[in-house]
Design a protein around this nucleic acid. Structure first.
Lengths: 346, 346
DNA sequence: TGCACATTTGCAATCGGTTTCATTAATTCA
DNA sequence: TGAATTAATGAAACCGATTGCAAATGTGCA
């Protein structure tokens, strides 16, 4: 791909000719592991540097058995949660000599199915999928069908779970996350704790819900279903939830938002209705994206240690691709970041 | 890349054999443009569907003269401005049958230089670069050197400007953006308008600054240099700027933040010091990312119509790659989105 | 010095497509 | 119906690397 002054793409053949050796020798210098007489190696190396030669990645990928590329399929890279995980994955992959290809499904199931094919076409060695169909309890059958087909050929690593499809799970310890948040609030004296946003047909959300129920019960607090507002994972879900919560006689004194976007909506509506955060109502959330730090008040949120998560995802992908036998489920431990949005019940 | 039941990757040769035709014919069916007898075409097509066959992208890229891939090099995909532009670019590219490869430099010049090589290695037909060295007036010489080398071989499309390197510019009409914001504030009665964040050695920031000066002068208002706070493009820059501004005798009554992050810092500090936004101080910003909508108050910001920008970038890249003669500078027209953070001077 | 053995090296096949070119089959039209 | 023309097809070269294998060169030791 490097070009000489004539602007022609130069190849190992050109280097070989000028160095007076065979292309194989140049290739051996490039791949570094074969044994080449030092004198020739230097001669070739000098030309590589002279022309700033880089071997064509497509040709290399074709001839190698290993493409050294892993695919990352996410719901939407514009969401800071995903982009943070993506960058962490990429860093970890790069550290092991792998490249990463990004695909976004943008919530469209057809696109998601299509992306799996596209990644396969690119000869990726494994696919990391975060968000999208893998998170839904009842997954679209076209997706399942395609995922099954794919997993016969290359491993899928996911934070979710695909029915009937064997894949490696690298997730977040959702139970621990809920525990941290719920007990934080209980410790502050809150008992009327509401849940804002998220759909219960999404596995991680469902797990969170169940754990929330368990914890309350274990503390002798009965679960009030009206304190659970199902909705999306966005600002609006949070905003709408508060309309309902604060219209109740027994208003919640604390709200757990499904993510930082949702928390922003919750806080907005609370402020609009004249409540103060955290004096009147505490608000906490999951994900601890940079948004948690941008809002006023800054939000108490659950952090997942994205570098660790990304590394776990990438390492699993690469290890599995190399045939290593790994546990099919690993998870990262969340921790609580206390900020300004949660306080003692008054 | 599709595999049959034996889990072996199948190729056009397999399809050809089973269909009783030559690989060339299968290829013709695949590329669609050659003429193949309908009967055979159908026979081949049926097998393609049966096995869900997709031609290997690496092989295709290697044999084709056109790779139909463009590279996108950005500063940091975790920044909503970049991720929004990226998705828009990808969409536009996809619509024209092109794929996109993402690289992030994360602010490291070495990485940025390296990425140019990596993209070249991938046989991209053009590189779109937004953010990073292309934005700096005095660009690192290692970068310039590499960029020069690259542009001899493939076009670079950028929102910035690289000294001495011929590239296609697709930008934002910065002067118009400043005009919209400044006149909006002037119309609201503000005269003491401050600038928070951004470095003047960044072209777009410098352009904004110059235009700001021009507009104030044309209205007979003298420019107070103390109203210009240079800094980064983040929350902290905004936060720090307000410390200085509000310590002055003649405090500004309106602040233009260099982006939404910066605006968040500005507002935060204002609130901490007991000022209300917009009653006491108006705050506006550039970029109109979703952050502008999340904050309280919602921020009046400049929108760039990201879909149009993305399309302009991708179209330029593809057109230039195809040898079309385009104007070397095109720009998108910004517009003002008025929200809650700006109001009449009291 | 000569022979056995270890290193280097190049040839040629391969990865999986596309495309040119020559050949063959199908049409068109007088 | 047969010659001229056009459409369909396959063989083979090519894209730019890697790698198995055999040949060539170098080394060690008796």
């Amino acid at each position: 791909m490097a070009k000489n002054n004539d602007n022609k793409t130069i190849t190992i053949y050109d280097i070989a000719k000028e160095a007076g050796v065979s292309p194989s020798t140049v290739s051996r210098v490039l791949t570094n592991n074969a044994n080449v007489r030092p004198e020739k190696r230097e001669r070739v190396q000098a030309l590589i540097e002279k022309y700033n030669f880089r071997p064509n990645a497509l040709a290399k990928g074709l001839s190698d058995t290993r493409s050294r590329v892993i695919g990352v399929l996410m719901a939407d890279i514009r969401n800071p949660f995903y982009s943070t995980v993506y960058v962490a994955c990429e860093d970890a992959a790069l550290a092991r000599g792998y490249r990463v290809i990004l695909c976004c499904s943008l919530g469209e199931i057809d696109r998601e199915v299509e992306q799996l094919d596209i990644l396969k076409q690119q000869s990726v060695e494994a696919i990391i999928q975060i968000g999208g169909s893998v998170d839904a309890v009842i997954t679209e059958s076209t997706y399942i069908k395609k995922a099954k087909e794919i997993t016969r050929q290359l491993p899928i690593i996911t934070s979710g779970k695909i029915d009937d499809v064997p894949c490696y799970r690298v997730g977040i310890d959702a139970r621990e996350a809920v525990r941290l948040l719920t007990e934080h609030l209980l410790d502050l004296g809150h008992e009327r704790i509401a849940l804002a946003g998220g759909r219960l047909d999404v596995i991680s959300t469902f797990e969170k819900y169940m754990t929330y129920c368990d914890i309350l019960k274990s503390r002798g607090i009965s679960v009030n279903k009206r304190y659970v507002f199902e909705g999306g994972y966005d600002y609006d879900a949070g905003y709408e939830s508060v309309k309902e919560f604060m219209a109740m006689k027994e208003k919640p004194t604390a709200i757990i938002a499904i993510n930082d976007f949702c928390a922003a909506g919750v806080i907005r509506r609370l402020v609009e209705e004249g409540y103060r955060v955290p004096e009147d109502v505490s608000v906490v959330s999951y994900d601890n994206t940079y948004i948690a730090n941008l809002l006023f008040p800054k939000i108490t949120s659950i952090d997942y240690d994205y570098d660790t998560l990304g590394k776990m995802l990438a390492d699993t992908a690469i290890d599995v691709a190399n045939g290593e036998n790994l546990p099919s489920f690993r998870s990262v431990t969340p921790h609580l970041v206390v900020r300004e949005s949660s306080g003692e019940r008054r």
